[in-house]
Amino acid sequence: MATLQKIISKAKDNSNFIYRGCAFEKYDLVPTLARKLKTDISFAQYNIYSDVVKKAAERGYSEVGMNGLADGLSQHYGLSTSYLDWSYSVYVALYFAFSSYIKQFVDENILDQHIDLCKMHCLRDDFNKHKYCIYRLNKTLYDELKNQYPKLPLIVSDTDHKNERMESQQGLLSSIDSTKVNDNAKIQNSQIKILADWLQSNNPDDFLKQSGDKYSWNNETLLEKITFKLSQRDRNDLQKYLKENGAISTKLFPDFEGVKKNIEFSKDYNILRDWEIAYQEAPLNSNFTAPEDLSKMVNGNQNVINSRLNTDNLGEGEFFPFQ
């Protein structure tokens, strides 16, 4: 299990990698469109769906005067596509992993739910022990692999600088060229599995070596999945790191969507603090909290929470306190 500091340190030490952050460790490298379709749909049918979306999007973007390539615009403006987002910035990847989890956690566990003291403690435990993941792909090594095998099914497209969101997020896209996949490939297979299977079938003496969540080629790491947790201290540090490196909503979404996301994420985080969930368990030798204060905490008395508990600090990064 990696730490936040180790992930950032690795990124600083090696600039060859691009990154993709995920809210859950179970998330694989499978595009949204593929996840929504039936498992038995062929790549030929998959292409039909993708082409329909692309042509409709191209017409729409032209009508409203948006700049940029349709594939990247669709991916960055919320359409389900056959692409995956990556970024040259590890901080952008961390932003998406953390902020996506906050939204889903609040939507599923807090809103319209009855929460008593017991459930509050369980939710706090879940929030503190949650496992995220970040993928890192060696772009330099991928380019060498692609140069050696031009028919490689994995395509990594560089930043479309006309796309404002993609530019702000230092974004790239990965996709699968379905005309080059093996016959047994499925649309819901991980992109790295499709790549590894193709290389094994077409060049068995030059395959990707897998060790756990790491794939290597020519004795170098090509792709690695890193699982990590965020303690309260890490969550506080992460806010500062993201702000210092421009990985906040109003920078990554340079339109009113960024303002909206900033307010919504702040609202959700304040809910987690009000319910004593964004909180690190106190050491065993600390003073016990009085029963009357526990009751006030459950009822969302932020003054008592702040004075008695070690809650997450807001206001130094993406999130701001609701007073």
Rank of each mutant, 00 (worst) to 15 (best):
M1P: 11
K6N: 12
A11R: 06
D13T: 13
S15L: 10
N16W: 01
R20H: 05
C22F: 07
Y27L: 05
L33A: 07
K36R: 07
T39E: 15
D40R: 01
D40F: 09
F43E: 08
A44W: 06
I48L: 10
S50V: 01
S50F: 05
S50L: 00
D51W: 00
A56C: 07
E63I: 11
G68H: 01
H76S: 03
G78R: 00
T81C: 06
L84K: 00
L84F: 00
L84N: 00
Y88T: 08
V90Q: 04
Y101A: 03
I102H: 09
V106C: 07
Q113I: 13
D116H: 06
L117P: 00
K119Q: 12
L123Y: 10
L123M: 03
D125H: 14
N128P: 04
C133P: 03
L137P: 05
N138Q: 03
L141R: 03
Y142L: 05
D143S: 13
L145Y: 11
N147Q: 13
N147M: 09
L152N: 15
I155G: 02
V156T: 08
V156F: 05
S157W: 01
D158W: 00
D158V: 01
K162F: 14
S174W: 02
S174P: 01
S175W: 04
D177Q: 10
S178P: 03
T179H: 10
V181D: 04
K186G: 01
K186E: 04
A196L: 02
S201F: 08
G212Q: 04
K214R: 14
K214A: 07
N218V: 09
K225C: 06
L230K: 07
S231Q: 05
S231H: 07
K240S: 13
K243Q: 11
G246T: 01
A247K: 11
A247Y: 06
L252T: 07
F253D: 02
F256M: 15
E257K: 07
N262T: 11
E264I: 11
F265W: 10
S266Y: 05
L272N: 06
L272K: 02
I277Q: 02
Y279D: 12
L284H: 10
F288N: 14
E292H: 12
S295H: 10
K296L: 14
N299L: 14
N299K: 13
N301Q: 07
N301E: 06
V304E: 01
I305N: 02
N310V: 08
N313K: 13
G317H: 00
E318P: 04
F319M: 05
F322L: 14
